[in-house]
Design a protein around this nucleic acid. Structure first.
Length: 537
DNA sequence: GGGTTTTGCGCC
DNA sequence: AAAGGGCGCAAAACCC
């Protein structure tokens, strides 16, 4: 059963409208939703706008259908990339009315989304629930016109579940011990400095750098560093750390140490914690489908870039544990399953795919790994050519699959993931460039993008599907608290550990079956239970 | 002075 | 050894 939901802009109430029923206003939307026994798929315009309020009132949704996310997928599939995707915009397009721009949800320091100041009624003279219901029906009809509607419906379901999960992760937050984080920073940098001052250890390193060069140098300034090396008779093309590592000069060591610590200080230091951590919880803002490939992005807090070192601050509550699971070698397995390459699929039936491939590449696991990565990323340097020739000969289906994607991209065509996410079309700039002197380079650049798109986007689909299944199978009060491309974290009471680990394994199997049916490719998802995230690897 | 682009590097 | 896909973010660098 589908029920269409519209939330009142200012309060707890809203409108419910069964698929073929009459709209009814309710004064307590969360209570109405909580009364669902699990058979309802809630249809609404934008999870980010409605669900945080529902969560705040203690209710939880089983399944939803997110109009805006679906509209984005549909527009791309119809070759119309980047147009507004709100329910109002979809309605306007269908009726030939002026299309309102998307109003990006306004966020404030980890406190979730603020309500919009403008009224939701975009001037169409139709109640929101009716508008949503109409757009919903229209989307179902458009989906039915696609080449593979069944797969696309799965994509929509996984994407919508992702929106629920992202909101819940933001609501519950990932365990983050403020005291541990502060102690870690103090150990590495010295005590928290006064505003505008460098931490003691950073200042000491900066002084060392200046002393080594015999002049004042701002270690944060690439320009000044290059100049300082020049004055010392050394020419460096950039100040990237791998470049500096090859330079022999007493300033290099303190400079590299400075850069490493300065990054921790500015990205995940005290100021960051002030903004994003409260009550021993890190509340990030995830953007579901924020990457064109369908990967999640973040709009604040940098949740997808937490340095390994900082994971020491991620500690389960007393009596609870963190179940951390990541998919091993996800992308090559996805390629093997999509391309239906017999040889590669056989190797992908093993736990260590690269080891299983080693024999084909002269017995070297490293060579096998470089070959696979070069095929998926479009690598050309070093041994890549030689290894790709082996790949083409031994795994022709897999090789051909990514080559086809690359060629499509070079020719300006669109490519699609397994479930039907469509790559963006080439930009006007690209079209202009590709017929000019830099055309070959522009074409190859886009080829690398589309080559990777088909693999990365399908890997994201597998991960989203896994997470949707896992969420549905978790016992209460276990919660998904973190997700990073191919890795999930569940926070649960200690006694639920075996249940949660089993749920992860089941979800991986079910996701594989839902996407690829009866494939010999295995998708190992080993779950470990740890007290501290840093101990997970 | 303010807005935009570049640099460099963290994560997958 | 340093090439190849996707991001976000802070500070510097650049530009009006």
């Amino acid at each position: 059963m589908y029920v269409v939901v519209a939330a009142d802009p200012e309060g707890r109430g809203g409108t419910l409208r069964p698929e073929d029923g009459i709209a009814a206003h309710v004064t307590d939307l969360a209570a109405a939703i909580a009364g669902d026994a699990g058979e309802v798929r809630w249809v609404w315009g934008d999870t980010r706008r409605i669900y945080p309020g529902v969560l705040a009132q203690g209710a939880r949704v089983g399944r939803c259908y997110d109009i805006a996310l679906t509209e984005g997928l549909l527009l791309a599939a119809e070759g119309r990339f980047g147009e507004p995707r709100s329910a109002e915009a979809a309605y306007a397009r269908a009726h030939g009315l002026p299309v309102p721009e998307d109003r990006e949800a306004v966020a404030e320091g980890g406190q979730g989304l603020l309500f919009e100041t403008e009224p939701r009624d975009a001037g169409f003279g139709i109640p929101e629930a009716d508008l949503v219901a109409e757009v919903y029906r229209g989307q179902l009809a458009r989906i039915a016109q696609l080449p593979e509607p069944g797969k696309f419906r799965l994509l929509v379901a996984a994407e919508s579940a992702g929106a629920l999960i992202a909101a819940e992760m933001g609501f519950h937050g990932m365990p983050w011990r403020e005291a541990v984080h502060d102690a870690l920073l103090t150990e590495l940098l010295g005590p928290r400095p006064a505003h505008g001052m460098r931490p003691a250890k950073l200042q000491a390193l900066a002084d060392e750098v200046a002393a080594a060069f015999g002049q004042a140098v701002n270690p944060d300034s690439p320009q000044q560093i290059v100049k300082a090396f020049k004055a010392a008779g050394l020419t460096v093309p950039s100040t990237r750390s791998w470049v500096l590592k090859q330079v022999e000069h007493p300033g290099v060591k303190p400079l590299l140490a400075y850069k490493e610590l300065a990054r921790l200080y500015s990205f995940h230091g005290w100021v960051w914690a002030d903004q994003w951590v409260r009550g021993d919880r890190f509340r990030a803002e995830y953007v579901v489908g924020g990457v064109v490939s369908g990967r999640w992005a973040t709009s604040g807090g940098g949740a997808l870039q937490i340095p390994k070192l900082m994971r020491r601050a991620v500690v389960a509550d007393d009596g609870w544990t963190l179940v951390v699971a990541d998919a091993a070698q996800l992308e090559p397995r996805v390629l093997a399953a999509m391309a239906q390459d017999g040889g590669l699929a056989r190797a992908a039936g093993e736990i260590d795919l690269y080891a299983a491939l080693a024999k084909a590449f002269g017995g070297s696991r490293d060579a096998a790994k470089i070959a696979m990565l070069s095929a998926m990323y479009g690598g050309t340097s070093g041994d890549a050519h030689k290894l790709l020739a082996v790949m083409r000969q031994r795994f022709p289906q897999a090789y051909g699959f990514v080559e086809d994607a690359a060629r499509a991209g070079e020719e300006g065509h669109l490519v699609r993931s397994w479930l039907g996410r469509t790559s963006p079309p080439p930009s006007a700039r690209w079209r202009a460039l590709v017929s000019g002197p830099e055309g070959v380079r522009a074409a190859r650049d886009r080829g690398r993008f589309t080559r990777n798109f088909v693999v990365q986007a399908t890997a994201a689909e597998w991960a989203n599907t896994l997470m949707a299944i896992l969420r549905a199978n978790l016992p209460d009060p276990a919660r998904l608290v973190f997700f990073q491309h191919d890795e999930v974290m569940v926070h649960c009471p200690l006694d639920q550990t075996p249940t949660v680990r089993a749920a992860v394994a089941t979800a991986a199997d079910e996701a594989t079956r839902l996407l690829f049916g009866d494939t010999p490719v295995r998708f190992p998802m080993e779950a470990v239970a740890v007290t501290c995230y840093a101990d997970a690897k």
